[in-house]
Structure formats: C-alpha cells, structure tokens
Design a protein around this nucleic acid. Structure first.
Lengths: 120, 120
DNA sequence: ATTATAGTTGAATACATATTCAACTGTCAA
DNA sequence: TTGACAGTTGAATATGTATTCAACTATAAT
C-alpha cells in the first residue's frame, strides 16, 4: 500500500503522512494562482511600485520618477500587476492613476516586509 | 524644483509626493531581498513544498511522493528554499528532514492563500 | 570493504521574462 | 484639425530559471 504512489526507490516513506498531505493539498488551480501572485510581486521593480502605491495613488509619470525608470518599463510592469488585479486604475484627463486593488495585498506586503527586515 | 528628478517629459507630476515616497522607499537591499523572497516562493513546485512543510516536517522522499516528482527536482528546489532560509533541515540516518524555518513564512503563506482563495 | 539507499549537484535543454526601442492610442489645448 | 502630452503595446534582445540526466557524496547494513 505504501508503494501505490511511490515515485522513487526509497523505503523510508511515511506513507500515511504522504497520503494525508496529498489529500489536503490545495488543488492545482489554487496553487498555480498563488504561485503566480508571488511570481508577479517577486520582482524589484514591481516591489517598488507596490511600495509606492501602498503610500498613495500615483500616475505612471509619478511612478517613473519615484523609481527613476522609463514610462514604458513602468507601464509594462503595471500591466502585469493589473492583469492579476493587484492594482486598479482610473483615468483623469491625460493621466492614469494607479492604486492597490485589495487590502490583502498591502497586508501580505507589510508582513513580508517586517519578516524581511528582521533577516536583512 | 519639480524637474530635478524628472526622467520623463511629463508636466503633471506631483513633485512633493514623488519626493516623499522616494525618501521613504525601503533601500535597494531590502527591496531586493523582499523581491527575491517572493520570487523564490513564486513557483508552483515550491508552493506545494511549502504547503506540505506547513503541515509537517518531511524528508525528500516523502516530498517527492507528495508532489509526484523526482528527488532531484525536489532537492534542487529545496536548495533554493534553504539558501533563503525559508526551510531548515536535519539529518536522521540516511534521511534528511525539512521543515519551515520561520513562522512568518507560514503566516505570509496563509494570508496569501486566504486572499487567493477569495479571488479564485 | 561492499552494496544499497537517500539525497545532492553540475551541465544541458527548453522555456520564460525584464528592459529597450519605436510606433501606436487617447486626451486635451490652441 | 493640428500638435503636444500621457500612457500603452509589440518585437527584439539579453538574461534567468525549471526540469532532466548522469554522476556524485553520505549513511547504514551485510
């Protein structure tokens, strides 16, 4: 019974544990979404954008000045954040203002920052 | 004054805001560490490993069975998690047991999962 | 010592991604 | 309607990464 899911040549498997964890594992779709979420915020440029937006709503131009990067680069990265609904936007005349789309994002970000600040 | 940090051709910059956010921005080292942390957990395989380890300490063999992947793949990914001190390990005979290295990781993970589950 | 098990590691492949550049759309003012 | 500004987008380049494979180390048993 311990072998019906064995993909390796080991004999020290904790079969009941493996089975239990396998069954409680969030399904592929959830894991994939979670991983993509982290992947998208796992980039220095986008981390800086998120920090900036956690302080205040800003237009692309403001962001490009805060980060000292071209509007094109910022816009490309904002598009990724927008696709994942991590940020939202509103147009006001010629300017497009971005902000965080969900308080959970700010929450995750602040806890992570606290954790990281401890370890750096 | 609003132009001494302008990297684009825009005139609608909120200069005082840009300056304020620029100054309060965590320094490059912190941002980089934070981004790397997210980048490392931003992968389906490693997300699954973290979920498994959030349930219980496990050896490489257990993990490879939970995830249905080779020991080599798991070991490569564990090495990355280990490098960032996201997981720790202990040897017991021939087996090496891995576990989460810091409760903050589990905390970040669980908040994110809650957030994602809402959106999926 | 020899053999088998548990895990690690380096190189190779295949794939994904950040930034740049140039061309584009949308909005406003003259 | 023409021009300027604010932002977006596609292609190209350069770089990075996950997985596989084969060879390796470390531990235990015979």
């Amino acid at each position: 019974m311990s072998k019906n899911f064995c993909v390796c040549d080991c004999s020290t498997i904790n079969a009941s544990l493996v089975e239990k964890v396998r069954e409680s594992m969030p399904d592929e779709r959830v894991i994939s979404t979670l991983a993509t979420f982290y992947e998208i915020i796992g980039d220095s440029t986008r981390c800086k954008i998120l920090y900036a937006l956690s302080q205040c709503e800003m237009c692309v131009c403001d962001l490009s000045n805060v980060l000292n990067m071209t509007k094109s680069t910022i816009s490309h990265q904002l598009a990724k954040l927008k696709d994942l609904r991590i940020v939202k936007y509103r147009r006001e005349g010629k300017a497009v203002y971005y902000s965080l789309d969900d308080e959970h994002v700010a929450q995750v970000y602040s806890i992570s920052l606290k954790y990281i600040t401890h370890t750096v």
